[in-house]
């Protein structure tokens, strides 16, 4: 059975989101900072009448905060009834594949491990599957 994936670029690498978990892809132009919260919260921004929480994916990988530019792209997901926008470098395409999901063959590096634990092999390329929940329900782990 074929599954749809959204292919995006994150910190210079291509990764995929399961399309079923993605609500939409948006351009983030204007965001409002949220002071005094976990560093991976990049701010708030409004999409129609909804207030979305921006998540800085890059922070998990590099520990550096991403700069929000006028053309920043974000993947919109709904986790636990709240809508989040995950900042990515670029959105590549959407494709469907019947390739099998595999466990990570080896560690992709500390930061990447937080983002996902499975990969997809597409045309000889190994793509990390991002699990949006991992980027959102992190505060317990960090606090611990």
């Amino acid at each position: 059975m074929n599954t749809l994936y959204l292919r995006v670029c994150l910190n210079g690498r291509d990764v995929v989101f399961p399309a079923a978990k993605v609500e939409s892809v948006v351009n983030v132009d204007q965001s409002v900072a949220v002071p005094n919260v976990e560093p991976y919260i990049a701010g708030l921004f409004a999409m129609r009448s909804k207030v979305l929480t921006l998540i800085d994916c890059q922070w998990f990988i590099t520990g550096q905060k991403a700069a929000i530019k006028k053309s920043s792209m974000a993947v919109v997901v709904d986790v636990g009834g709240h809508v989040y926008a995950l900042l990515v470098d670029a959105v590549r395409d959407i494709f469907d594949t019947d390739a099998n999901i595999k466990e990570l063959p080896s560690s992709p590096g500390a930061g990447w491990e937080t983002l996902g634990s499975t990969i997809l092999e597409e045309n000889g390329e190994a793509l990390l599957i991002i699990e949006p929940e991992n980027l959102i329900n992190v505060h317990q782990d960090i606090a611990a």
Partner: peptide, 8 residues
Amino acid sequence: GAPAIMAS
């Protein structure tokens, strides 16, 4: 707000 924001 999102739980991570309310947690502050």
